[in-house]
Deep mutational scan, measured.
Amino acid sequence: MKHYEVEILDAKTREKLCFLDKVEPHATIAEIKNLFTKTHPQWYPARQSLRLDPKGKSLKDEDVLQKLPVGTTATLYFRDLGAQISWVTVFLTEYAGPLFIYLLFYFRVPFIYGHKYDFTSSRHTVVHLACICHSFHYIKRLLETLFVHRFSHGTMPLRNIFKNCTYYWGFAAWMAYYINHPLYTPPTYGAQQVKLALAIFVICQLGNFSIHMALRDLRPAGSKTRKIPYPTKNPFTWLFLLVSCPNYTYEVGSWIGFAIMTQCLPVALFSLVGFTQMTIWAKGKHRSYLKEFRDYPPLRMPIIPFLL
Protein backbone atom coordinates (compact mmCIF):
# COMPACT_ATOMS: atom_id res chain seq x y z
CA MET A 1 0.00 0.00 0.00
CA LYS A 2 1.43 3.34 -1.03
CA HIS A 3 1.84 6.10 1.52
CA TYR A 4 1.60 9.83 1.06
CA GLU A 5 3.97 12.62 1.92
CA VAL A 6 2.25 15.77 3.11
CA GLU A 7 3.91 19.15 3.34
CA ILE A 8 2.08 21.98 5.04
CA LEU A 9 2.91 25.54 4.02
CA ASP A 10 1.86 28.87 5.48
CA ALA A 11 -0.86 30.20 3.17
CA LYS A 12 0.48 33.75 3.40
CA THR A 13 4.27 33.38 3.37
CA ARG A 14 4.56 29.94 1.69
CA GLU A 15 6.98 28.99 4.48
CA LYS A 16 7.18 25.24 5.10
CA LEU A 17 5.70 24.57 8.52
CA CYS A 18 5.61 20.81 8.62
CA PHE A 19 6.47 17.70 6.60
CA LEU A 20 4.58 14.50 7.31
CA ASP A 21 6.06 11.26 6.00
CA LYS A 22 4.30 7.92 5.44
CA VAL A 23 0.77 9.22 5.86
CA GLU A 24 -1.90 6.57 5.35
CA PRO A 25 -3.97 7.03 2.15
CA HIS A 26 -7.21 6.82 4.11
CA ALA A 27 -6.11 9.46 6.61
CA THR A 28 -8.66 12.24 7.06
CA ILE A 29 -7.96 15.95 7.27
CA ALA A 30 -8.86 15.74 10.96
CA GLU A 31 -6.09 13.18 11.46
CA ILE A 32 -3.62 15.33 9.53
CA LYS A 33 -4.53 18.27 11.77
CA ASN A 34 -3.74 16.14 14.81
CA LEU A 35 -0.35 15.21 13.34
CA PHE A 36 0.34 18.88 12.60
CA THR A 37 -0.51 19.80 16.20
CA LYS A 38 2.23 17.49 17.47
CA THR A 39 4.87 19.72 15.84
CA HIS A 40 3.00 23.00 16.44
CA PRO A 41 1.00 22.58 19.67
CA GLN A 42 0.01 26.27 19.69
CA TRP A 43 -2.24 25.52 16.72
CA TYR A 44 -4.72 22.99 18.04
CA PRO A 45 -7.00 21.36 15.43
CA ALA A 46 -9.91 23.77 15.86
CA ARG A 47 -7.60 26.70 14.98
CA GLN A 48 -6.43 25.12 11.76
CA SER A 49 -7.74 25.72 8.28
CA LEU A 50 -6.11 23.43 5.71
CA ARG A 51 -6.75 23.98 2.02
CA LEU A 52 -5.44 22.87 -1.37
CA ASP A 53 -5.00 26.44 -2.58
CA PRO A 54 -3.79 29.40 -0.48
CA LYS A 55 -6.99 31.31 -1.30
CA GLY A 56 -9.26 28.29 -1.63
CA LYS A 57 -11.92 26.88 0.67
CA SER A 58 -11.06 25.02 3.84
CA LEU A 59 -11.06 21.26 3.56
CA LYS A 60 -13.58 19.41 5.69
CA ASP A 61 -12.35 17.33 8.61
CA GLU A 62 -13.96 14.24 7.11
CA ASP A 63 -12.24 14.64 3.71
CA VAL A 64 -9.98 11.65 2.95
CA LEU A 65 -6.46 12.26 1.63
CA GLN A 66 -6.56 9.73 -1.22
CA LYS A 67 -9.82 11.19 -2.52
CA LEU A 68 -8.37 14.68 -2.86
CA PRO A 69 -6.95 15.90 -6.21
CA VAL A 70 -3.33 15.54 -5.05
CA GLY A 71 -0.40 13.28 -5.89
CA THR A 72 1.48 11.06 -3.47
CA THR A 73 3.29 14.20 -2.36
CA ALA A 74 0.52 16.53 -1.26
CA THR A 75 0.86 20.21 -0.48
CA LEU A 76 -1.62 21.74 1.93
CA TYR A 77 -1.83 25.39 2.93
CA PHE A 78 -2.42 26.43 6.52
CA ARG A 79 -4.27 29.42 7.92
CA ASP A 80 -4.64 30.19 11.61
CA LEU A 81 -8.31 30.75 12.49
CA GLY A 82 -7.41 32.34 15.80
CA ALA A 83 -8.48 31.38 19.31
CA GLN A 84 -11.62 29.23 19.28
CA ILE A 85 -14.45 28.63 21.74
CA SER A 86 -17.18 25.99 21.70
CA TRP A 87 -20.61 26.82 20.33
CA VAL A 88 -22.22 25.47 23.48
CA THR A 89 -20.21 27.84 25.68
CA VAL A 90 -21.11 30.82 23.48
CA PHE A 91 -24.81 29.96 23.42
CA LEU A 92 -25.01 29.38 27.17
CA THR A 93 -23.26 32.67 27.85
CA GLU A 94 -25.24 34.80 25.42
CA TYR A 95 -28.58 33.33 26.58
CA ALA A 96 -27.94 33.30 30.33
CA GLY A 97 -27.08 37.01 30.26
CA PRO A 98 -30.48 38.32 29.09
CA LEU A 99 -32.27 36.05 31.56
CA PHE A 100 -30.48 37.50 34.60
CA ILE A 101 -30.19 41.06 33.27
CA TYR A 102 -33.93 41.29 32.67
CA LEU A 103 -34.68 40.04 36.19
CA LEU A 104 -32.46 42.77 37.70
CA PHE A 105 -34.74 45.38 36.15
CA TYR A 106 -37.91 43.43 36.95
CA PHE A 107 -37.05 43.28 40.66
CA ARG A 108 -35.87 46.90 40.50
CA VAL A 109 -32.61 46.36 42.29
CA PRO A 110 -30.97 49.52 43.72
CA PHE A 111 -29.28 52.15 41.51
CA ILE A 112 -31.56 51.57 38.50
CA TYR A 113 -34.73 53.61 38.98
CA GLY A 114 -34.01 55.56 42.12
CA HIS A 115 -34.03 54.73 45.82
CA LYS A 116 -37.78 55.04 46.38
CA TYR A 117 -38.44 52.35 43.77
CA ASP A 118 -35.93 49.79 45.08
CA PHE A 119 -37.47 46.29 45.08
CA THR A 120 -40.96 47.63 44.38
CA SER A 121 -43.38 45.83 42.10
CA SER A 122 -45.24 47.13 39.05
CA ARG A 123 -49.01 47.47 39.30
CA HIS A 124 -49.47 46.48 35.65
CA THR A 125 -50.24 42.82 34.93
CA VAL A 126 -48.59 43.01 31.51
CA VAL A 127 -45.22 43.79 33.14
CA HIS A 128 -45.32 40.55 35.12
CA LEU A 129 -46.55 38.61 32.11
CA ALA A 130 -43.73 40.05 30.00
CA CYS A 131 -41.18 38.90 32.58
CA ILE A 132 -42.62 35.38 32.51
CA CYS A 133 -42.50 35.27 28.70
CA HIS A 134 -38.99 36.70 28.47
CA SER A 135 -37.66 34.33 31.13
CA PHE A 136 -39.39 31.35 29.54
CA HIS A 137 -37.88 32.19 26.16
CA TYR A 138 -34.29 32.22 27.40
CA ILE A 139 -34.70 29.24 29.74
CA LYS A 140 -36.02 27.36 26.70
CA ARG A 141 -32.98 28.43 24.69
CA LEU A 142 -30.59 27.31 27.42
CA LEU A 143 -32.25 23.90 27.73
CA GLU A 144 -32.28 23.45 23.94
CA THR A 145 -28.57 24.25 23.82
CA LEU A 146 -27.86 21.57 26.41
CA PHE A 147 -30.25 18.85 25.32
CA VAL A 148 -31.61 19.46 21.80
CA HIS A 149 -29.22 21.19 19.42
CA ARG A 150 -26.59 19.21 17.53
CA PHE A 151 -23.86 21.42 16.15
CA SER A 152 -22.19 20.72 12.81
CA HIS A 153 -19.22 22.82 13.92
CA GLY A 154 -17.67 22.38 17.34
CA THR A 155 -16.15 25.83 17.72
CA MET A 156 -16.30 29.44 16.57
CA PRO A 157 -13.81 32.33 16.87
CA LEU A 158 -13.41 33.57 20.45
CA ARG A 159 -14.18 37.15 19.38
CA ASN A 160 -17.75 36.09 18.53
CA ILE A 161 -18.67 35.69 22.18
CA PHE A 162 -18.03 39.39 22.81
CA LYS A 163 -20.01 40.45 19.74
CA ASN A 164 -22.93 38.13 20.51
CA CYS A 165 -23.08 39.02 24.19
CA THR A 166 -23.01 42.74 23.41
CA TYR A 167 -26.01 42.25 21.14
CA TYR A 168 -28.13 40.02 23.38
CA TRP A 169 -27.19 41.54 26.73
CA GLY A 170 -27.44 45.12 25.47
CA PHE A 171 -30.89 44.70 23.97
CA ALA A 172 -32.10 42.81 27.06
CA ALA A 173 -31.05 45.69 29.32
CA TRP A 174 -32.56 48.29 26.98
CA MET A 175 -35.98 46.66 26.69
CA ALA A 176 -36.07 45.64 30.36
CA TYR A 177 -35.35 49.21 31.49
CA TYR A 178 -38.46 50.55 29.76
CA ILE A 179 -40.83 47.64 30.34
CA ASN A 180 -40.13 47.58 34.08
CA HIS A 181 -39.87 51.36 34.50
CA PRO A 182 -42.15 52.82 37.21
CA LEU A 183 -43.62 55.17 34.57
CA TYR A 184 -44.26 52.42 32.02
CA THR A 185 -47.48 52.87 30.04
CA PRO A 186 -49.50 49.69 29.32
CA PRO A 187 -50.58 48.79 25.74
CA THR A 188 -53.11 51.08 24.08
CA TYR A 189 -55.81 48.44 23.63
CA GLY A 190 -55.42 46.92 27.06
CA ALA A 191 -56.20 43.30 27.86
CA GLN A 192 -57.35 42.41 24.33
CA GLN A 193 -54.01 43.47 22.87
CA VAL A 194 -52.10 41.58 25.56
CA LYS A 195 -54.12 38.38 25.09
CA LEU A 196 -53.67 38.42 21.32
CA ALA A 197 -49.94 39.03 21.69
CA LEU A 198 -49.62 36.29 24.30
CA ALA A 199 -51.34 33.82 21.95
CA ILE A 200 -48.90 34.74 19.16
CA PHE A 201 -45.95 34.36 21.50
CA VAL A 202 -46.99 30.97 22.89
CA ILE A 203 -47.87 29.50 19.48
CA CYS A 204 -44.55 30.64 18.00
CA GLN A 205 -42.57 29.32 20.95
CA LEU A 206 -44.21 25.92 20.58
CA GLY A 207 -43.55 26.04 16.85
CA ASN A 208 -39.91 26.97 17.32
CA PHE A 209 -39.38 24.10 19.75
CA SER A 210 -41.15 21.66 17.43
CA ILE A 211 -38.88 22.62 14.53
CA HIS A 212 -35.77 22.25 16.68
CA MET A 213 -36.87 18.75 17.68
CA ALA A 214 -37.57 17.83 14.05
CA LEU A 215 -34.13 19.07 12.99
CA ARG A 216 -32.52 17.18 15.85
CA ASP A 217 -34.09 13.92 14.71
CA LEU A 218 -32.60 14.42 11.23
CA ARG A 219 -29.01 14.30 12.46
CA PRO A 220 -27.66 11.32 14.44
CA ALA A 221 -25.60 12.27 17.48
CA GLY A 222 -21.95 12.93 16.64
CA SER A 223 -22.51 13.15 12.89
CA LYS A 224 -22.60 15.96 10.34
CA THR A 225 -25.23 14.29 8.17
CA ARG A 226 -27.53 16.67 6.30
CA LYS A 227 -30.99 15.68 5.09
CA ILE A 228 -33.94 17.55 3.66
CA PRO A 229 -36.30 18.40 6.53
CA TYR A 230 -39.92 17.48 5.93
CA PRO A 231 -43.13 18.01 7.95
CA THR A 232 -43.97 15.39 10.56
CA LYS A 233 -47.27 14.54 12.25
CA ASN A 234 -46.72 17.57 14.48
CA PRO A 235 -48.81 20.41 12.91
CA PHE A 236 -46.19 22.99 13.89
CA THR A 237 -43.75 21.36 11.46
CA TRP A 238 -46.11 21.77 8.51
CA LEU A 239 -44.49 25.14 7.89
CA PHE A 240 -41.67 23.12 6.28
CA LEU A 241 -44.01 22.87 3.28
CA LEU A 242 -43.48 26.57 2.62
CA VAL A 243 -40.15 27.67 4.11
CA SER A 244 -36.68 26.22 4.58
CA CYS A 245 -36.08 27.66 8.06
CA PRO A 246 -39.39 27.73 9.96
CA ASN A 247 -37.46 27.88 13.24
CA TYR A 248 -36.48 31.43 12.26
CA THR A 249 -40.04 32.20 11.16
CA TYR A 250 -41.37 31.15 14.57
CA GLU A 251 -38.56 32.99 16.38
CA VAL A 252 -39.39 36.25 14.63
CA GLY A 253 -43.08 35.65 15.35
CA SER A 254 -42.33 35.22 19.05
CA TRP A 255 -40.62 38.60 19.24
CA ILE A 256 -43.36 40.29 17.23
CA GLY A 257 -45.83 38.93 19.76
CA PHE A 258 -43.66 40.20 22.61
CA ALA A 259 -43.43 43.63 20.94
CA ILE A 260 -47.22 43.83 20.58
CA MET A 261 -47.68 42.71 24.18
CA THR A 262 -45.33 45.30 25.68
CA GLN A 263 -45.79 48.05 23.05
CA CYS A 264 -42.15 48.89 23.65
CA LEU A 265 -39.92 50.46 20.97
CA PRO A 266 -36.68 48.66 21.98
CA VAL A 267 -38.48 45.31 21.61
CA ALA A 268 -39.69 46.31 18.15
CA LEU A 269 -36.16 47.30 17.13
CA PHE A 270 -34.78 44.04 18.53
CA SER A 271 -37.38 42.17 16.47
CA LEU A 272 -36.40 44.08 13.33
CA VAL A 273 -32.66 43.53 13.79
CA GLY A 274 -33.27 39.86 14.59
CA PHE A 275 -35.46 39.43 11.53
CA THR A 276 -32.78 41.00 9.32
CA GLN A 277 -30.07 38.70 10.65
CA MET A 278 -32.23 35.58 10.54
CA THR A 279 -33.23 36.39 6.96
CA ILE A 280 -29.54 36.41 6.00
CA TRP A 281 -29.01 33.06 7.74
CA ALA A 282 -32.17 31.59 6.19
CA LYS A 283 -31.15 32.65 2.67
CA GLY A 284 -27.74 31.06 3.17
CA LYS A 285 -29.22 27.78 4.36
CA HIS A 286 -31.81 27.84 1.57
CA ARG A 287 -29.07 28.23 -1.06
CA SER A 288 -27.13 25.42 0.59
CA TYR A 289 -30.15 23.10 0.43
CA LEU A 290 -30.74 23.92 -3.24
CA LYS A 291 -27.09 23.30 -4.07
CA GLU A 292 -26.84 20.02 -2.17
CA PHE A 293 -30.21 18.43 -2.96
CA ARG A 294 -31.50 18.29 -6.54
CA ASP A 295 -34.92 17.14 -5.36
CA TYR A 296 -35.33 20.00 -2.88
CA PRO A 297 -38.99 21.17 -2.75
CA PRO A 298 -39.31 24.08 -5.22
CA LEU A 299 -42.14 25.89 -3.42
CA ARG A 300 -40.13 26.67 -0.31
CA MET A 301 -38.90 30.17 0.44
CA PRO A 302 -36.14 30.90 3.00
CA ILE A 303 -38.17 32.41 5.87
CA ILE A 304 -41.51 33.97 4.83
CA PRO A 305 -43.97 31.86 2.79
CA PHE A 306 -44.34 33.02 -0.83
CA LEU A 307 -42.37 36.23 -0.21
CA LEU A 308 -38.86 35.92 1.17
Score class of each variant (00 low, 15 high):
residue 75 T to W: 01
residue 81 L to P: 08
residue 295 D to L: 13
residue 83 A to Y: 15
residue 15 E to Y: 01
residue 294 R to A: 00
residue 201 F to T: 09
residue 287 R to I: 13
residue 94 E to K: 03
residue 252 V to E: 07
residue 101 I to R: 05
residue 232 T to L: 15
residue 230 Y to H: 11
residue 229 P to L: 07
residue 19 F to C: 04
residue 132 I to Q: 14
residue 67 K to F: 08
residue 282 A to F: 11
residue 58 S to P: 12
residue 141 R to I: 08
residue 199 A to P: 11
residue 193 Q to E: 04
residue 80 D to E: 02
residue 263 Q to K: 08
residue 133 C to D: 01
residue 212 H to S: 08
residue 303 I to N: 08
residue 235 P to L: 07
residue 132 I to A: 13
residue 66 Q to E: 02
residue 14 R to C: 02
residue 307 L to R: 08
residue 42 Q to P: 09
residue 299 L to D: 01
residue 43 W to F: 00
residue 55 K to E: 07
residue 290 L to E: 01
residue 279 T to N: 06
residue 269 L to M: 07
residue 105 F to Y: 15
residue 178 Y to D: 12
residue 221 A to D: 13
residue 130 A to I: 00
residue 209 F to A: 01
residue 260 I to G: 05
residue 63 D to A: 07
residue 204 C to T: 07
residue 135 S to C: 10
residue 146 L to I: 12
residue 29 I to H: 03
residue 83 A to I: 06
residue 83 A to V: 12
residue 201 F to I: 14
residue 20 L to F: 09
residue 298 P to S: 10
residue 262 T to E: 01
residue 10 D to M: 08
residue 259 A to V: 09
residue 41 P to L: 10
residue 7 E to D: 07
residue 199 A to Y: 15
residue 47 R to V: 13
residue 292 E to Y: 14
residue 101 I to A: 03
residue 172 A to S: 09
residue 127 V to D: 05
residue 239 L to I: 05
residue 81 L to Q: 13
residue 107 F to S: 08
residue 50 L to H: 07
residue 210 S to H: 11
residue 146 L to V: 08
residue 50 L to I: 03
residue 31 E to P: 01
residue 42 Q to H: 09
residue 284 G to D: 11
residue 239 L to N: 03
residue 243 V to D: 02
residue 237 T to R: 13
residue 226 R to Q: 09
residue 26 H to N: 01
residue 211 I to D: 15
residue 26 H to S: 13
residue 87 W to E: 01
residue 274 G to A: 12
residue 45 P to I: 05
residue 31 E to N: 13
residue 304 I to N: 08
residue 48 Q to E: 13
residue 2 K to W: 05
residue 158 L to M: 01
residue 105 F to A: 15
residue 188 T to N: 02
residue 94 E to D: 03
residue 162 F to L: 11
residue 129 L to R: 03
residue 29 I to A: 06
residue 297 P to R: 03
residue 136 F to L: 11
residue 299 L to W: 05
residue 9 L to S: 11
residue 256 I to R: 07
residue 48 Q to T: 11
residue 157 P to M: 12
residue 51 R to H: 10
residue 236 F to K: 04
residue 129 L to V: 05
residue 218 L to S: 11
residue 198 L to I: 03
residue 47 R to N: 00
residue 285 K to R: 10
residue 5 E to S: 13
residue 45 P to H: 04
residue 256 I to K: 02
residue 30 A to S: 08
residue 134 H to Y: 05
residue 21 D to R: 04
residue 154 G to M: 04
residue 230 Y to C: 11
residue 136 F to K: 00
residue 141 R to C: 03
residue 270 F to T: 05
residue 101 I to L: 00
residue 184 Y to L: 15
residue 306 F to S: 08
residue 195 K to I: 14
residue 20 L to C: 07
residue 49 S to I: 01
residue 180 N to F: 02
residue 220 P to R: 12
residue 139 I to S: 14
residue 271 S to A: 12
residue 163 K to N: 05
residue 10 D to W: 01
residue 304 I to Q: 05
residue 175 M to S: 04
residue 292 E to V: 11
residue 8 I to S: 08
residue 192 Q to K: 03
residue 114 G to P: 15
residue 127 V to R: 06
residue 249 T to A: 10
residue 263 Q to L: 07
residue 240 F to T: 15
residue 233 K to P: 14
residue 263 Q to P: 06
residue 189 Y to D: 09
residue 28 T to M: 03
residue 293 F to P: 02
residue 239 L to F: 08
residue 44 Y to S: 09
residue 206 L to R: 04
residue 46 A to C: 02
residue 192 Q to G: 15
residue 94 E to L: 02
residue 195 K to G: 15
